[in-house]
Simulated scan of single mutants.
Amino acid sequence: MSTIVPITGRVQFQIVLDPSSWIFDHRKIELNDYLTETITIQDVLGHNRDERAGAAMPRMIETGVKYEKDKWLTDSFVIPIAPFLSNAEPLEDASLVHLLSEDGEEITTLPITVFKEGVFCFSKNGKILKEEGPLQFYNLDDYHDEPIGGISKIVLA
């Protein structure tokens, strides 16, 4: 199974996601913190914008949130989808997102507005998702108890 997930279709730039590198990304959130809304996506992305502008200390330093190496090996993590979708630059007429499995079968179709508000789970109990991965989709409104798993390709339409 490949851990590389392409975003294709009605986008300006076709990009690939490598979930195996996200453990080092400062935008990651512990799954439990996301599900209990201890840390929101808006907090993470808003602070990330301030960091890029030089107006804020990095989130981990300022809030004291530190992900020690032992947590990387034992906890579950998610990462916001919005920055990746923004980098692909969906075309104006893109309104749907098709989530496909490794064999190319469609798992589900979501409105792009629902998709961009969600997160990808890429690590469960310190391990990369294999059987239910490489990505799982969570959204606090609809897909928090039963995430959509087995995502290997994302196609905007």
Rank of each mutant, 00 (worst) to 15 (best):
M1A: 12
M1L: 11
M1T: 13
I7C: 02
T8Q: 10
G9Q: 05
G9K: 04
R10C: 04
R10N: 05
F13S: 00
Q14V: 09
V16K: 00
V16T: 03
W22K: 06
F24M: 00
F24Q: 03
K28Q: 10
I29L: 08
L31F: 04
T40P: 02
V44P: 00
E51L: 15
A53T: 13
A56P: 10
M57Y: 14
P58M: 07
T63Y: 14
Y67H: 14
D70K: 09
K71H: 14
L73A: 15
L73M: 14
D75W: 08
S76W: 06
F77M: 06
P80F: 09
I81N: 01
I81V: 14
L85S: 07
S86E: 04
S86R: 02
N87P: 07
L91Y: 00
E92V: 14
D93I: 14
A94C: 07
L96V: 14
V97G: 03
V97W: 01
V97I: 13
V97A: 09
L99T: 09
L110V: 15
I112F: 13
G118T: 12
G118Y: 06
V119N: 02
F120M: 08
C121Q: 09
K124P: 01
G126D: 07
G126T: 12
K127Y: 10
K127G: 10
K130S: 12
P134I: 08
L135A: 10
Y138M: 06
N139I: 05
L140T: 09
L140H: 07
D142P: 01
Y143N: 05
H144Q: 08
E146G: 01
P147K: 03
G150P: 03
G150M: 01
I151S: 02
I151E: 02
S152K: 03
I154H: 06
I154E: 04
A157W: 01
